[in-house]
Nucleic acid binder design. Sequence first.
DNA 1: CTATTAACTTAATAGTGTTAATTTTATTCG
DNA 2: CGAATAAAATTAACACTATTAAGTTAATAG
Lengths: 204, 204
Amino acid sequence: MVRLAMTQPQIEFRREEILDVALELFERGGIEAVSFRRIAFRLDCSYSAPYRYFASKHELLTALRARAFRWIEQRMVNAIAGSSSPIEQLRKLARAYMDAALELPDRYALMFFDIGDDDLDPSPELVEAKRAALGICTRVVAAAEKAGQLSLRVDPLSASHLFWGGAHGLVSLQVGSQFVMGRAYETLAPMMIDTLIAGLKAPP
Amino acid sequence: MVRLAMTQPQIEFRREEILDVALELFERGGIEAVSFRRIAFRLDCSYSAPYRYFASKHELLTALRARAFRWIEQRMVNAIAGSSSPIEQLRKLARAYMDAALELPDRYALMFFDIGDDDLDPSPELVEAKRAALGICTRVVAAAEKAGQLSLRVDPLSASHLFWGGAHGLVSLQVGSQFVMGRAYETLAPMMIDTLIAGLKAPP
DNA sequence: CTATTAACTTAATAGTGTTAATTTTATTCG
DNA sequence: CGAATAAAATTAACACTATTAAGTTAATAG
């Protein structure tokens, strides 16, 4: 018979507690600042204790990444709440995505930039979080097609990959401070959205 | 008076030698595999010696990143060599960029994904390498406008930011294995290029 | 030859992720 | 309740890491 000293909700609570501290450390000093020693110090436990909840640092960061995807998903959901027209929703959604990325660039970078072999043993939690976030986009694209506002030449999923890709590309050039566009970004962001919508519209 | 035991070219040679090993280590095992100890071991010197040439690991990785930008620049330059039409060149360039990224995804990831505070003390070498790579794109865009094949609503630099962003976004979704598009990518890559060109074309 | 100095080595510091052995703590059964 | 049992946390250790400082070698300029 299996006996648990902690009930499942308690375990989940402790996990979240650890992730809270990890996120705080990350947002202050990046990925390097996240260490089991530091987490343990803030949680007033030994540096080995968090291993009961996360098998490795990679697993911890993966959970953090999943959180970030759920966060940006929420931002998109909130953004489309007021609009009824799917094409309007698509615009709002893209804008919200980009704004979120620029508002917390480090968190956004975590989602995409710090990956060490995610292929092996992909976390179901992360996969689901990504799927859900992309799902918002896919649903809106599909709705726009149904409403006759978009005539897709590919399936809605592929179309939202294209859409997401465009939005992601522009902000990540800015976020990673790879190419600073400065004020030009304010012009380019709506322009990218218009361009992508136009591209999804075009009849041959 | 300043005396140098090594002439400037010799110093540059040693730097390149270190970078060669660092690149090899990186392409095998990612950023974690690059360490001064391992480099030193392969170069048959003490693990402290490379510090004469790179002040920190970050500086070493920055130099490696600059190399990668020059590499992808070369790929673009090679790609446009045969074409005379600017709009054709733009297509070829974008395709070559995306192909390069997918061919050596780890190297591409290094360019964009592993950045720890690049803002402070930006390496002139890296800044120049980025500028040069983007410059290819900007020049072709400008040429296309001059030839009447593109009617830009923004300056060529901003336009190429948009263009680069779109291409980068699509491949980086694939590269980081964030969203696997599988075969759909073959469709989406040309579609993204067409979409971006159409977006840069549109008259109001 | 001697002083200088670049290049390098050795040694040490402070930190990391991770594992194993051990102790503490709490729960469940008799 | 008390003893058995197992979970949770701790301590200690290992094998790394980046980085710095002090000391050494070797070559060159005057």
